[in-house]
């Protein structure tokens, strides 16, 4: 049985078939707020660190402003600051809420801090080799909301191994003795996702994915954040430490506080 309407069915089928779903973000207000805040924080850092006042700073152009040796401390500064804003998590969730509810559930937990990646052109220090997060302790019931702040394509984006190929190579996992060898084998089948600013991506980390050094012209900026249904298995990423409940419904709250007549 599957009591869903036609639109939900279409989205769910596409997601299950490909392992991901790209959508246009309707909540432009929150999207702009996030992007503007990132630019503001960046200018703050530039002023503090380099004593530079750059009014024309754009995210695509970050590589012209920040040197590779300062990249990680800059990234951490922006990451900590944006995650410290009370409104940020809620705004981030609102961008994908509609599709998260169709694909994952309406009682959700969310990763406490959204991860931020900044990839300067030709910098191989912040690449994420082929992996599936489930292999390193994440729950197979999680979904990632990936948000680009610039247009992402080819090596400026991320790659995934489409579901059918993923299933095929997963079965042969032990035939390849190292991740490098596995990567060489799956490389011809990888799909590079083209996602523009203004779009969002939901994907399952049960399939293999990753990135390589960005060999396009501009800097890549993207957030990623995990969501899952409240009562699904957690594996190593536990509630309280890694996840926070964000949409607990009244019936669950009632259940949580219920006492049988013989309980105090």
């Amino acid at each position: 049985m599957n009591f869903v309407n036609n639109e939900e069915l279409r989205v769910q089928k596409k997601f299950l078939n490909k392992g991901y779903y790209i959508f246009n973000i309707k909540d432009k207000k929150n999207l702009t707020r996030i992007k503007k805040s990132i630019i503001k924080i960046s200018k703050e850092w530039l002023k503090k660190k380099y004593k530079k006042k750059n009014q024309n700073f754009t995210l695509d152009n970050t590589h012209n402003e920040i040197s590779i040796k300062d990249l990680n401390s800059y990234r951490l500064y922006v990451y900590e600051k944006i995650n410290s804003y009370k409104w940020f998590s809620k705004a981030y969730f609102s961008l994908g809420k509609r599709y998260l509810e169709m694909i994952c559930g309406n009682e959700l937990v969310m990763q406490k801090k959204c991860n931020l990646s900044i990839q300067l052109p030709n910098d191989d220090s912040s690449t994420l080799p082929l992996h599936s997060d489930v292999w390193v302790g994440d729950s197979e019931y999680e979904i990632v909301l990936w948000l680009p702040l610039v247009d992402c394509y080819r090596t400026k984006s991320m790659f995934i191994l489409p579901t059918d190929k993923n299933n095929k190579f997963s079965k042969k996992f032990f035939k390849y003795k190292s991740t490098n060898k596995l990567f060489t084998a799956v490389k011809p089948h990888l799909k590079w996702l083209k996602i523009d600013y203004g779009q969002g991506l939901l994907f399952t980390q049960n399939i293999m994915h990753g990135n390589v050094a960005n060999s396009e012209k501009g800097t890549r900026w993207s957030f990623n954040c995990r969501f899952k249904a409240i009562f699904s298995p957690y594996r190593d990423k536990s509630i309280g430490v890694f996840f926070k409940p964000i949409t607990m419904k009244p019936v669950t709250k009632l259940g949580m506080s219920y006492k049988y007549p013989n309980e105090k």
């Binding site: 390193v136 302790g137 996992f173 390849y176 991740t179 490098n180």
Partner: peptide
């Protein structure tokens, strides 16, 4: 580098060789 959860897999450690 983080080794995988699957028993007896040393894929990540083996990749460190290269």
């Amino acid at each position: 580098a983080t080794e995988y959860v699957m028993k007896n897999s040393y894929h990540v450690l083996n990749s460190l060789k290269s």
